[in-house]
Design a protein around this nucleic acid. Structure first.
Lengths: 392, 392
DNA sequence: CTGTTAGCGCCTTCAT
DNA sequence: ATGAAGGCGCTAACAG
């Protein structure tokens, strides 16, 4: 849906050869395996395994939870019995008794933007081998919704939580405290050290980017950003831009700033507005790659050349940006590392091991073809460059 | 990591201003809220709510599960008590007693490829309002691993399952049957009607694409695909290409076929091999957009112009492909619709309502700038076009 | 090292 | 329309 707007040509073939509409209400061939409602099968219980192995249920439990306490022979016998019966312990009963479900919840803004999916994937890779499962929820940048889904996950006995961002409803923290659930915030690192967190310095990221652009000679900046309300990443990134400009004796003209949803079309629309200004910026900073690529689309459409007429930068260093022509200058943010570190953090907490409550991970400026000195001020840019060069 | 290889320039700033390494082992300020291991808080139980509302626990249970059976006044009183105590029912206890956890599991190949994340997101959007949570697992295209994580999810009391693809370990189905778990397969529709499934005709998709390319005048085809073992989508898409060619009296030269992981760099490497052939193809079909965009990267690098020198097509119609220059001709696959339909399907099954066990969704050819008639055979292409035109 | 016993928190009959 | 009581399957505590 999103992408269709970029079609160069769309002949609009549709539903070709997709076979006859085969949603037969009845069932010509008898309904398939495991069809009906809930078969309520007689699943094997620990008691069955115990009987088959000639031991007590307690021993079965020990084989599962502390195999070191069990005689090797018994261990083997029990394991054999478990395999024979295809026994899987009843998670709900375990959770009820042991106050541990071995499930970790990740509450993220959205999957439409691939970033969180990658972080989540990194978490899962760490959790799965340890026997933990990952339960997911999205809140679409809506704080009340975040609270609601978190409550649902607590109710589903999730042991520990991962959240994106530092800004959350205070009730959320109250809830987590009430139910004694450990959690990590992520993406940023809590400056007040009130909540465990793992992330990077969002402000420093755009600060460095802006400094680089100033050094190229840019003086008139545009900003395309997510709405900052309840979104500390967006807020911090905006501050980074403004403070770098301030330090260079410049200012961000608020007419060159647009806020909107993280969506290519929306970003393109925002960029069109900037291009229509009397005095458009010579560089546009997107607070992530989606904004930046959306801006590129608008420029292509308008015949604005990148980077000759306009420089564009993003944040996150996604494939989406990296594969554009020209490649998008961006910031590699440690999204995979955040997921890994967060998962390890939570496991450690759950297992009572000590952890670093605050972890700051590095980011990295990645310069590609979408940035260059502004056309109108090539002289200034050269000057600026020659002035910064000795500084390194 | 992936993307860094495409850097046009990478000055390699690294870890700028990320603050001091602040992983203080001790804790200067006293550790933050909900820090330690597992506080084992005294969470409110149904009994507490019952006492506060002056009713029995049975009534509390009814308020939650069948509010219609409860007197409005009592209902209100109980709800008030629940709110006051921030009571959340204990999911594990519920699941143990009621044989229903209200969790649905999605077992997908990977999140690195954004597609599955979007489908999953669509599922979550349907599930959440109904009080279901989504539990996720990845298997990275490894069937034994799929079996393992599924077992883990069954053990975690997941009620129903979503799987990607039609080809699975037979043991998987045995397990699901043993534990009476409903499931849907997805992406394709089971031709043998053995397993409930919702998807589209993968074979027809590439069949149509190939027909279109043949009609442009192409005779020499290349194919970039995921390894077909245990991956029915890849298998079917390959068959679609071959059968369309066969129908046109053509053949797929196996020297023009490369299999590899779904990864931009890998795809670029495969494309380089095709370009190095004595007689390279005039068109390359990627079985998804990642292969196609990877191929584009290799072409740019080699100075091969698209579509003048080579046409390229993908499948999935992702933003990644749509935003390339030129835009990637692709096939819009119904990934969001699959997620929605699958979630609705599973909920219906869990609630004992009747469902369509087999749903075929439409796909759509999206033609953009990456395809054109082959240079060497413009005449033939024109001819072909004029011949097909009256047919529609 | 292994068995016995009790109960986690809730839902579900069965009464009333 | 509401209450009383048993037990879901497992593990923790205690014996032996």
């Amino acid at each position: 849906m999103k992408s269709n707007t970029f079609n160069v040509v769309n002949r609009g073939f549709s539903n070709i050869d997709a076979g006859p509409p085969d949603d037969d209400p009845g069932a010509p061939p008898p309904p398939a395996g495991a069809a009906g409602g809930v078969p309520e099968t007689q699943r094997p219980r620990a008691k069955d395994v115990a009987r088959l192995a000639g031991v007590s249920t307690a021993t079965v439990s020990r084989v599962i939870n502390s195999p070191l306490l069990v005689e090797p022979d018994t261990l083997l016998a029990v394991r054999e019995a478990m395999a024979k019966l295809r026994y899987l312990p009843h998670g709900a009963a375990r959770a009820l008794r042991s106050h541990r479900s071995h499930m970790v919840g990740a509450v993220v803004p959205s999957f439409d933007y691939a970033l969180y999916a990658r972080t989540t994937s990194a978490m899962q890779a760490v959790l799965e081998p340890k026997g933990y499962s990952l339960v997911l929820a999205e809140h679409h940048y809506d704080l009340p919704s975040e609270l609601r889904v978190t409550a649902q996950l607590i109710s589903h006995a999730v042991d520990a939580f991962f959240f994106v961002g530092l800004a959350h409803d205070p009730t959320l923290f109250a809830l987590l405290a009430d139910y004694g659930r450990p959690y990590v915030l992520s993406w940023g690192v809590d400056p007040l050290r009130q909540h465990p967190s793992v992330g990077f310095d969002n402000r420093a990221a755009t600060y460095e980017m802006t400094r680089y652009l100033v050094s190229l000679g840019h003086r008139r900046f545009g900003l395309l950003s997510a709405r900052p309300e309840g979104n500390d990443r967006a807020t911090e990134r905006g501050i980074g831009v403004r403070s770098a400009l301030a330090q260079a004796g410049l200012e961000l003209d608020e007419r060159c700033v647009r806020y909107g949803p993280i969506d290519l079309n929306a970003a393109a629309a925002m960029m069109r507005e900037l291009l229509a200004l009397d005095e458009p910026p010579t560089v546009v900073i997107g607070t992530n790659d989606v904004f930046a690529v959306g801006a590129m689309l608008a420029c292509r459409e308008a015949g604005v050349r990148i980077p000759e007429d306009l420089s564009i930068t993003g944040v996150d260093n996604t494939d989406l940006g990296a594969t554009q022509t020209p490649g998008l200058t961006s910031i590699r943010t440690p999204i995979v590392e955040i997921g890994q570190a967060a998962a390890q953090h939570l496991i450690a907490r759950l297992e009572g091991r000590p952890v670093n409550l605050f972890q700051t991970l590095p980011f990295e400026l990645v310069i590609r073809g979408s940035t260059a000195a502004p056309r109108s001020s090539a002289g200034i840019a050269a000057l600026a460059r020659s002035r910064t060069a000795p500084t390194r």
